[in-house]
Design a protein around this nucleic acid. Structure first.
Length: 438
RNA sequence: GGAGGGGUGGCAGAGUGGUUGAUCGCGUCGGUUUCGAAAACCGAAAUGCCGGAAACGGCAUCGGGGGUUCGAAUCCCCCCCCCUCCGCCA
């Protein structure tokens, strides 16, 4: 969520930023209007409340005094608030009750306005960082680096669906399209990849391994920004439980420190977790659907970091490097794309996509997305850091895939194939897979 | 699923309708003392929102939401979480 104070103080900056993301900035003016209204009502409410509090505080002692002397005069606070000295406690009660109702009416209005403001802000994405390149569409993303060489073949390389049995028919029968069913070699390869990813990040990159729930509450998805905006993308259980299947481990990981304050010296806190990811892909029907290019359930090892605003920018690079390292060890050619303002994710301020080269389909495929959210998620999830001099302030969060299995698997299959249709397992993965050839 | 017990400040733990933002202890920070430290003593210390240049003032917060009341940490209702026992089950 964006900072309401920033919207108040620098509405034009906010609008400019949002405009670069192709967001209709009218919402900012609506929020400003509601906010001005809200503040006025809130001030009224609090003034009234302050007066009532004073009067009520004096009430008890008055009752006590009347026990000794039934003629004890009403305290000044009461007289002042009511305009005249009340004759007896019951009259005072009635009068105070009326004033209390008036206050409650104002409070109800104020609360309604605030709810409206929040409802609007929940649909407003983060502001892009200054470094994020301006752009109108994904075509304006910028290639920041390229690693490795695309393999050369003396034959026409096959697509992954022609190299191994993806089990799409079986999966389709038991769950529907977009649910591959691996048996034998690919199942083992999937497991090898997951273990390899986790071992690398926990042993060499300093991430704490997590095993998180795959079903979460609505509130948890709100914390990390998937809800309320992306409801259509989410699998949801029925009303008995009303839980959501996570679209990424980012969701449970981001909420680990929700509603809490972390001492600065503990930052950065780095987590990684394997989870399956569930996505309805509601808007993407028919696009890149062959093989396992786009599926409803896939495995992913996610990296997630909570840190201070001071350290977050450097951490973004570190995190991205951790993901790139996986690709380098697996000898997969990749490029780092910096997403432009039109293409960065909802909560992100800045984002690198790592795309792997897949020789069979002849495309760059997104295998990782490394984002810095600045305080956007932290504000929703109420994650703060605290330092003696700087006091408490919102934390910064980051996350990135390290990596997603299907796209990594596609690259391995397609890039390492031989003329005979065999696939060589990358050296670093061989101990995990158990042999050199698939 | 059934029965019971709990959720209070960084931790621990009082408080059952009226100056309680909340006793005491531990921990933390500052000071006195000391060559230095420990101990002792004195003192400080929550978060959010609104107003203010600031000092500061106001409001809110005792798991969350609603209610009763002039007034709620304290009474009532709903929800969530944790613990114990029973049942069921991988």
């Amino acid at each position: 969520m964006l900072d309401i104070k920033l919207i108040r103080e620098q509405p034009d900056t906010v609008k400019r930023g949002l405009a670069t993301r192709n967001v209709d900035t009218a919402v900012i003016d609506e929020v400003l209007k509601l906010d001005a209204n809200w503040r006025e009502l809130k001030a009224q409410e609090e003034t009234q409340q302050a007066a009532l509090n004073k009067a009520n505080k004096a009430f008890g002692p008055w009752m006590g005094a009347r026990k000794k002397d039934p003629k004890a005069p009403a305290p000044a606070e009461l007289t002042q608030l009511l305009g005249a000295a009340p004759t007896d406690p019951d009259a005072a009660k009635a009068a105070l009750g009326k004033l209390g109702e008036q206050r409650a009416d104002i409070a109800t209005l104020a609360d309604k306005l605030m709810a409206e403001i929040e409802q609007k802000l929940l649909f407003v994405p983060n502001l892009p960082a200054a470094q994020t390149p301006l752009g109108k569409s994904e075509d304006d993303n910028v290639v920041r680096k390229t690693w490795g060489d695309a393999p050369k073949f003396a034959f026409i390389p096959k697509a992954h669906w022609d190299l191994a049995d993806l089990g799409n028919e079986i999966g389709g029968r038991i769950s529907g399209s977009g649910f591959p069913f691996f048996r034998g070699r690919l199942a083992r390869l999937e497991r090898a990849l997951i273990t390899f990813f986790l071992d690398l990040h926990t042993r060499e990159h300093g991430y704490t391994e997590c095993w998180a729930p795959f079903l979460v509450r609505e509130e948890t998805l709100r914390n990390s920004g998937q809800l309320p905006k992306f409801l259509e993308e989410m699998y949801r259980t029925d009303a008995r439980d009303d839980l959501f299947l996570i679209p990424t481990a980012e969701v449970p990981l981001t909420s680990i420190h929700a509603d809490s304050i972390i001492p600065d010296e503990q930052a950065p806190i780095r987590y990684c977790a394997f989870t399956p990811c569930f996505r309805r892909e509601a808007g993407a029907a028919g696009k890149d659907t062959r093989g396992i290019l786009r599926v409803h359930q896939f495995s992913k090892v996610e990296l997630m970091v909570v840190t201070t605003p001071e350290k977050s920018e450097a951490e973004h690079e570190t995190l991205t490097r951790c993901a790139e390292r996986v690709l380098e060890l697996l000898e997969i050619p990749y490029r780092r794309l910096e997403l432009c303002t039109a293409d960065i994710g909802f909560g992100a301020a800045r984002c690198y996509d790592l795309e792997v080269w897949a020789a069979g389909v002849g495309k760059w495929l997104e295998a990782s997305s490394c984002s810095i959210f600045t305080d956007y998620q932290a504000r929703r999830a109420k994650i703060r850091v605290k330092d003696k001099e700087k006091g408490a302030r919102l934390a910064h969060t980051l996350n990135g895939s390290g990596l997603a299995c299907p796209r990594t698997m596609i690259a391995i299959l397609e890039n390492n194939q031989t003329a005979e249709g065999k696939v060589r397992i990358p050296k670093a993965l061989q101990p995990y897979y158990g042999c050199e050839w698939l």
